[in-house]
Design a protein around this nucleic acid. Structure first.
Lengths: 341, 341
DNA sequence: GTGAAAGCGCTAACAG
DNA sequence: CTGTTAGCGCTTTCAC
């Protein structure tokens, strides 16, 4: 069933059929009805390729993501996809893994498929070395590129980020002010946002004259293996590192800290404080429930899509937008002690 | 840059360029080299639409999923996407939500986009009422449809499922044989696999003459709101329902049971046993760590893709494949008591 | 081995 | 308001 069949059955030209298909105004109500009837009757749907060939677009956005099964990234993809759909776009998803080479491959593939825009979900797409980010700049020469929780200054690249630095800075200051000095910063990613978080912790500890390099601990290993993270913390303790607080760059790491503290028979939060990040469902999984920083993922996604649609629409849009996070207090942190006067 | 430009620069016809592009044998090594050089030099990549128009395929599979941020579904999507990519196919992802109407919309959209096949991830795509599944049968008239963890007998529909019935049956029998009689079955989905699990529990309890309707408890509400689930269990207790074991259809529900048991000051597993399902990362999040049924998601996905690629390749493939699950013992269930003789 | 030419189904000028 | 027609870029017979 093609546009020709329909035009024939309706007794009009293909141009007219095309017009009603595309909602052009220059069609009499009568012929419009007639054509619509035939279309309905034969369940006709236009061929997307042919349309794409002519228009050179398929109303499709490419979504790139290192690992769509990651709790946080999965949520982001979900929001992005739904909002895109609401805006009349479809999405092609590519899980790239964490290696640069496969990211480049996937990206080229999407561009070949003529996506109208690209969304890079997660900060791991940005590399330390300037030259490693060239693939993004090149892609942006073809289609607008949106960065979620990452930042790159290049033409046609737009960033939407959460202010991880400030969130971490403030949370750290607050934990110190509840009376904890020996706080381990526990993280597992050196990505853009990973760095910002660490910088926030550093700035706060520095300000409080408490910064200690050995309390900054990187965890290598599976992002989901909580027992392994817990073991890692136990090892730190065994090696003589004293700490009564953990600020984690992710809720999984914080959860491991909760398990560690329990294993050590610390009372939480009286003897030991823990702060998580992302305010994921994990925060409510453990006992006591985790205080965690919420970086407003859904709002970020909403804004990102709004910006993208604006760009595709030819409007001028902000190159970079920053939202601030919020610390969601639960039971793993103390309240600030009232000043005794 | 089109095939015409390349042909011109290479001093050959477009047909020849097309031949080298598609690896046809009837090209002399010399011209092949020359064409390849030009292609390389100009970074030429064929237009996917034009190709699609002619071939009527774009080597793309549509993935439908109710909620890609669901822990289990996200994992499934991840595996499916990666294996598809390895097989030379791309994937278009559509998150549909849980309502039938939007599932139908998304499905039509994907078919319009001329996907070569459809993968429905999760058992919630199959409905009780025969007529509600018509949309799948109709889709299957156009392209092969793969069902992950669901079952529908129709032409061109293929199912890959985990044997949830048997897994649940055996786990239930085992829990009873460790000495627990008052086991609540706690679930939140009436999907195909949801029903199979429940049936397994029922069969086992029936066999042990322990079946009690009021111990089968459905949880309505957000799938991620563990505190709400915990409250629900407390309410059951308050209403006078006695139970010292929970078999949950999902790890989240099981986690809630762990929290409940702790709140009640039960010792786990001495006073209270809990079994989860899916063996997700959540199983290692709580304390004690959760015994959970692993339904071998990655293997299911692998098989599903293999089957799909086979079908697309015109080979005869099994309509339905069943894998059995495995119970992963951790600390929330007791060992079977040795028989005292 | 290679080239010419006929589509694939649709959109958008252009003409009436 | 409606029809005619020229592409969009590629694949694929069919000749040579």
């Amino acid at each position: 069933m093609t546009i020709y069949d329909i035009s024939e059955k309706a007794g009009v030209s293909i141009a007219t059929v095309s017009r009603v298909l595309n909602g052009s105004s220059n069609v009499s109500e009568k012929t419009r009805r007639k054509v619509l009837d035939i279309i309905e009757q034969y369940q006709y749907a236009p061929n997307a390729f042919a349309r794409g060939l002519g228009l050179n677009t398929m109303k499709t956005i490419g979504i790139l993501c290192a690992d769509s099964s990651d709790l946080y990234l999965a949520k982001a993809i979900y929001h992005v996809e739904r909002k895109l759909q609401a805006g009349g776009y479809d999405s092609i998803l590519c899980c790239t893994g964490y290696e640069l080479a496969s990211k480049i491959t996937s990206m080229n593939l999407l561009i070949t498929k003529k996506v109208d825009g690209l969304i890079l979900v997660g900060s791991n797409f940005i590399y330390e070395k300037e030259s490693d980010n060239k693939y993004i700049v090149e892609a942006a020469a073809q289609v607008p590129v949106m960065l979620l929780n990452a930042d790159l200054d290049a033409p046609n690249v737009y960033s939407v980020v959460s202010d991880d630095f400030t969130s971490m800075y403030e949370a750290t200051i607050q934990m110190v002010e509840t009376g904890i000095q020996d706080i381990v910063y526990y993280y597992n990613s050196d990505s853009y946002s990973g760095k910002r978080k660490l910088a926030g912790y550093r700035a706060a500890m520095n300000e409080k004259k408490l910064l200690s390099g050995q309390r900054i601990q990187f965890y290598r290993g599976s992002r989901e293996d909580i027992p392994a993270m817990t073991e890692h913390l136990k090892r730190l303790h065994a090696q003589g590192l004293a700490f009564h607080g953990v600020i984690a760059a992710d809720d999984t790491l914080a959860l491991a800290a909760v398990k560690y503290a329990r294993a050590m028979n610390y009372r939480i939060p009286d003897d030991f404080s823990i702060l998580g990040y992302n305010n994921s469902m994990l925060a409510e999984c453990c006992e006591p429930e985790l205080t965690s920083i919420d970086n407003k993922l859904e709002i970020l996604c909403q804004h990102l899509i709004t910006t993208l649609l604006g760009v595709l629409d030819g409007r001028e849009m902000p190159k970079k937008t920053i939202f601030s996070g919020e610390i969601v207090r639960r039971r793993t942190t103390r309240r600030i002690e009232p000043v005794v006067s």
